[in-house]
Design a protein around this nucleic acid. Structure first.
Lengths: 175, 175
DNA sequence: ACCTGAACACCGTTCAAGT
DNA sequence: ACCTGAACACCGTTCAAGT
C-alpha cells in the first residue's frame, strides 16, 4: 500500500467517523504519525484527497446498484432501496460524492457509465427519464440527510409515491 | 434598520456575490466599517446569520411559487419553471436554504406550510406525493448546481421527463 | 450602548532544512 | 526519498478595555 493510498484510506475513516470538517491535514498526518507538511510530498492538496474519495464512492455505489441480489426486491423498488440504504450508511461520503463536479479526467473510463447503467435500464434506455429518476432518488436522500423533512414526515411513503409515478408507462421523451 | 438587520443584509450581498466561503465575520465587519468582534454584540454567531438568510430564502421562494403569473405557464410546468429559475438565480442562497435543517423554532409560524402549499396542490393534496415532487425538483436543481450532470446532458429534457412522470394520474399513496 | 486590540485555538499551504 | 519546524495568511470567537 503506497503512502498516498494510506492517506486516502485514513481520510475515508475520518470522514465516515467524524464528518468532513474533521478531515484536516493535521488530523490525517496525526493518524499516520507524521506532521501535516509531510503530506504534501504524497498528495497535491486536501482537494485531491477528497476527489479520490469521490471516485471511490462512485465506484462502490455503482457496483452496489449493479448487484442483482435476486433475494432482494427487484426492479425499481430494489434499486431504490439499495441506493437509499447506501446513502444512509455513508452520509458524509454520499454528500462528498454529490457536492462537487466529477473529475472526469481522473475517473477510470467507463466508471460513470457503469454506475448509471442500472438506472438507464429502469428508464427503458431513455436518458432524460433516467436523469429524472436519478434526481428523485438524490433529492429524497439529500433532503433526508439534511434533515429538511418535517420530523413527522413519512419518508417511506414519499419513496413509494416517487416509484409509483415513474413506474407506469415507459413512453419516451415528450418534447 | 437595526444593526442586526444590516449585518444580515450585508451577509446576503456577500453570499450572492462571492459565495458562502466569502461570508466571513471579518469580511462582514469590513463592509460595515467596524471590526469583527463588534458583530458579536448584535449577533450570537455566524450560524445565526446564516439561519436568518435561510428563513429569508424560504419566504422568498415560497412567495414566488404561490405567485400565479397567469401570463406564465400554469400548473406543474409553471411551478417547476419558477422553482428552477429562482435556484439558478440564487445558487448560493438555494444551497444554504437546503443544506441545513430548518430552524422551525425561529421560523415565522405557517411560513413552511405556505411555501409548500402550491406543491401540495399539484399533488392533489397527497403529502407523500408532494414530497416526491419536491424531491425531483430539488434533485434536478441540486445536481445542476453541483455540476454533476455530464456536460452534454439535456437538462430541460430531464425536467420534462420528471413532469411527465408526475403529471399522469393523481391516484393516492399505494402502500 | 457600541466598538476595539489582543489573544486563543484553529485552518491549508510553503519552504528551507535536516536524515 | 521522506520528514520536520517555522512561518504565512487566514478562520470563529472571547474578553478586558475604552468611549
Amino acid at each position: 500500500m503506497t503512502r498516498t493510498a494510506q492517506i486516502v484510506s485514513v481520510a475515508r475513516e475520518v470522514l465516515e467517523t467524524d464528518g468532513l470538517e474533521a478531515v484536516t491535514m493535521r488530523r490525517l498526518a496525526d493518524e499516520l504519525g507524521i506532521k501535516a507538511p509531510s503530506l504534501y510530498k504524497h498528495v497535491k492538496s486536501r482537494d485531491e484527497i477528497l476527489a479520490a474519495l469521490q471516485t471511490q464512492a462512485v465506484a462502490e455505489l455503482g457496483e452496489l446498484l449493479n448487484s442483482d441480489d435476486s433475494a432482494d426486491r427487484t426492479g425499481m423498488t430494489g434499486v431504490a432501496a439499495r441506493y437509499r440504504a447506501w446513502a444512509l450508511e455513508h452520509p458524509a461520503l454520499y454528500n462528498l460524492m454529490m457536492r462537487q463536479p466529477l473529475d472526469r479526467e481522473r475517473l477510470p473510463s467507463g466508471l460513470e457509465a457503469e454506475a448509471e447503467s442500472p438506472v438507464l435500464a429502469l428508464a427503458g434506455g431513455d436518458r432524460a427519464r433516467a436523469r429524472a429518476l436519478w434526481a428523485v432518488a438524490h433529492g429524497l436522500v439529500d433532503l433526508e440527510l439534511a434533515g429538511r423533512f418535517p420530523p413527522d414526515a413519512d419518508i417511506d411513503a414519499a419513496w413509494d409515491a416517487a416509484i409509483d409515478a415513474f413506474e407506469r408507462g415507459t413512453r419516451h421523451d415528450s418534447r
